[in-house]
Design a protein around this nucleic acid. Structure first.
Length: 304
DNA sequence: TTCCCGCAGT
DNA sequence: ACTGCGGGAA
């Protein structure tokens, strides 16, 4: 019972494993602009954008976003529709994340007098900030986080140390592996490892993976990775239709149902299967999500 | 097709 | 524990 899960998966010489990774990272790594700042606002923006969007596409969006809303106070004062519109203009995916980011900015300004929480627990109170993002921001802004566990970290630990595909085991092992007080460099480094050396298709020798001598997968040649749940088909999905509604409303400010419908689905027919009834349901959900306002049959992006 | 630095609501 | 959430790129 006192034996911590995951403990027995680590090599004996943990300090050597730690040093190898940190030195590998510091010798050479991708130079994303958010790695040049310790501003928690700028870090949070980068993390939220990165959650489901490839990093190379995030760079331009991140720079544009910070140009438009340079501080957390600027974002807190912004119109919700402008933030959501920005999100769709930059193809950043999940519009709810734009709302969360906007809401989190307001929380910092209104609930914390503009002062950012400096630890994972405090950061977790912010809208849209879960365990991963709380530790990422605490680490990269304040060097004060716990070990991050995302799909990259899971894949690395699963392969290198045969950690079972179990969230608590990953969390436990990741934390025991992280050098005390060095969350900033460590969390950057282990995710960099997953990003450039230990991807789905590994590149151990090409990336000169610093863990080859300890790595179970490198020894066995079995580079199986934990299952990542696959998403249902996007084409024709409700998610796609929601995205189109946001995109169209961003372009037209406001539209009546029968004006909006054909721009969302070419086969829109007011009385058909995909007609007013269907569109009203879609808009009702978007309204509940705080993304769209539907009043008197006219839809707009949410203002507040 | 699959991947991509998760989270909130229920 | 389970479900919904976008969309570009490889």
């Amino acid at each position: 019972m006192s034996e911590q899960a995951g403990d027995d998966h680590l090599p004996n010489d943990v300090p050597a494993v730690q040093t190898a990774l940190v030195e590998w990272y510091e010798a050479d790594h991708r130079d994303y602009p958010w790695r040049q700042t310790d501003d928690p606002y700028e870090i949070l923006v980068s993390e939220v954008m990165s959650q489901q969007t490839q990093l190379d596409r995030v760079v331009a969006a991140w720079e544009d976003f910070l140009e438009q809303w340079p501080t957390v106070a600027d974002l807190a004062a912004a119109d919700r529709g402008d933030v959501v519109g920005f999100w769709t203009d930059h193809s950043l995916g999940y519009n709810n994340r734009a709302k969360y980011l906007h809401e989190a900015a307001r929380q910092v300004v209104e609930d914390h007098d503009g002062q950012w929480p400096r630890d994972p627990d405090g950061l977790s109170e912010l809208m849209g900030v879960g365990p991963y993002t709380a530790n990422a921001v605490a680490s990269f802004a304040f060097n004060n986080g716990n070990a991050v566990v995302d799909t990259n970290v899971k894949r690395v630990l699963y392969r290198a140390f045969d950690v079972p595909d179990d969230d608590s085991a990953f969390e436990e092992t990741a934390q025991r592996l992280m050098p005390e007080g060095r969350s900033e460099v460590w969390n950057n480094a282990i995710m960099e490892l997953g990003g450039v050396a230990c991807e789905k298709t590994p590149d151990c020798d090409g990336a000169q993976c610093p863990w080859r001598e300890w790595c179970s997968a490198y020894q066995s040649g079995d580079f199986t990775a934990p299952d990542v749940p696959t998403q249902p088909t996007f084409e024709g999905s409700r998610r796609q239709m929601r995205g189109r509604v946001i995109s169209v409303l961003n372009e037209y400010d406001e539209l009546a149902l029968d004006e909006l419908g054909p721009r969302v689905r070419v086969d829109y027919a007011p009385e058909g299967e995909y007609g007013r009834e269907w569109l009203r349901g879609l808009l009702s959900d978007l309204d509940d999500d705080g993304l769209v306002t539907l009043t008197d049959g006219v839809a707009t992006l949410s203002r507040t």
